[in-house]
Design a binder for these strands. Structure first.
Lengths: 232, 232
DNA sequence: CAGTGGTCTAGACCACAGC
DNA sequence: CTGTGGTCTAGACCACTGC
């Protein structure tokens, strides 16, 4: 049962903040003062403060001191890929079409390419327990080494498709989540006969230089998906 | 133009990972080896490795070494509060009702309380440029010090309502995002006369001990909101 | 056993705040 | 000028891994 000194420092200062003894904007004892208080070296104190900073509890101003931060009440983390979510998971996919297309104005705009460049479009259906739950369409700029084997395309998530040609760590990604009434084609694919909305997740992937590598839309039956987030 | 040594270490190793020279699972040179390679002390090397670990590039196994991590392709960050989003922002609110109620089965279950406990319910309408864009309902366990002044309730986000009585840092929060067809009441409040879905954001707030402090539902007109996330 | 990462120390020099 | 945080060093001891 060894608790590192820096952990004790973290817990002690967290306790002061959570109890209200230290309020946002308040200064924390200086590092040298903390050294004396905890009987630790400055590097150990700084390790503790670094953890508090990383967790969003404090920030530092060089030459001034360490201060209690106003918590960010609006930040959440979600774990999303097309195939799995908190309620159900996709257990089967069907590759509907793979085409080489010329982008229309909107797509060319979004991918920041000329309308005469070729784009790969991939349309898929996702199933859970035999029922279609999502219609998925992706647009990819063609790159050497891109998976064009059906098997690879059929089961890959968007990130996986591109991480073969772009180092995954360098991928920047964006999500847009919205609610829509499905058009007739989507209704047909998803067996929607009554009034039922779709949850639309639009994904965009960029390389390290912010150049768009692809975009995609996934249309989920509204009664199938809930996207889950936490502030952890 | 001073670049700390540890930053150079971070960049050097990132470059090796991004270029594919180091692949997930590969071992990184030992800390002592890196000391020699970079002509730096072990603490400085460890500072660099700590940053790489924190950014998700590497992980370490005591007694074995540091290794390249498989990137988490599914993690996104969203910034959400009821009043603002990437497309528009709420510029006016109307407090519809504040009531003390007895929870029904579902609510008592969700808040983990007896059905005989009292709960505050707050119903509001959010407007943008004169148009109703969201119907919002919150359920709060009553606590001393809770804002009951209309003005405070009217403009507060959920986190703000509770951060007066619970230290904001200790708040755990959950989101559930889904698409629904609005019921007649919501349709009426949001001036929906045609087929238009709502994006529903369900929020739950917990204190540090995972005790639910409140829950809420916000029903946004589908043509009003898109929730935005990135992997940053 | 030797090598690894995890913790910790007691110094040092620097740039910057504020008086 | 003093005090602050930011960087860095050259050691040390520990627990763990794998031979």
């Amino acid at each position: 049962m060894v608790v590192p000194v820096y952990t004790q420092i973290v817990e002690a200062i967290k306790a002061k903040i959570d109890s209200g003894e230290l309020k946002p904007g308040d200064a924390i004892d200086s590092e040298n003062t903390l050294c004396k208080e905890f009987g630790a070296s400055r590097m150990t104190i700084r390790k503790g403060l670094g953890i508090l900073a990383q967790e969003g509890y404090i920030y530092s101003i060089p030459g001034k001191g360490n201060f209690v931060k106003k918590p960010d009440l609006t930040k959440y983390t979600i774990y999303y890929d097309e195939m799995s979510n908190t309620i159900n998971s996709v257990d089967r996919t069907r590759l509907l079409e793979v085409n080489i297309i010329m982008p229309d104005d909107t797509l060319a705009d979004n991918l920041q390419i000329s309308k005469r460049k070729n784009v790969i479009s991939i349309k898929r259906l996702f199933f859970t327990e035999g029922n279609p739950v999502a219609y998925d369409i992706k647009y990819l700029l063609y790159h050497r080494g891109m998976p064009i084997v059906e098997k690879e395309l059929q089961y890959a998530t968007f990130s996986e498709m591109l991480s073969k040609t772009t180092p995954a760590f360098a991928l920047k990604k964006e999500l847009l989540i919205s609610a829509e009434i499905p058009d007739e084609k989507v209704k047909h694919y998803l067996n929607i006969y009554k009034e039922l909305p779709v949850l639309v997740v639009e994904q965009k992937l960029f390389n390290r230089d912010n150049k768009p590598m692809g975009m995609g839309f996934t249309y989920y039956r509204g009664d199938y998906i809930k996207i889950h987030g936490t502030n952890q």
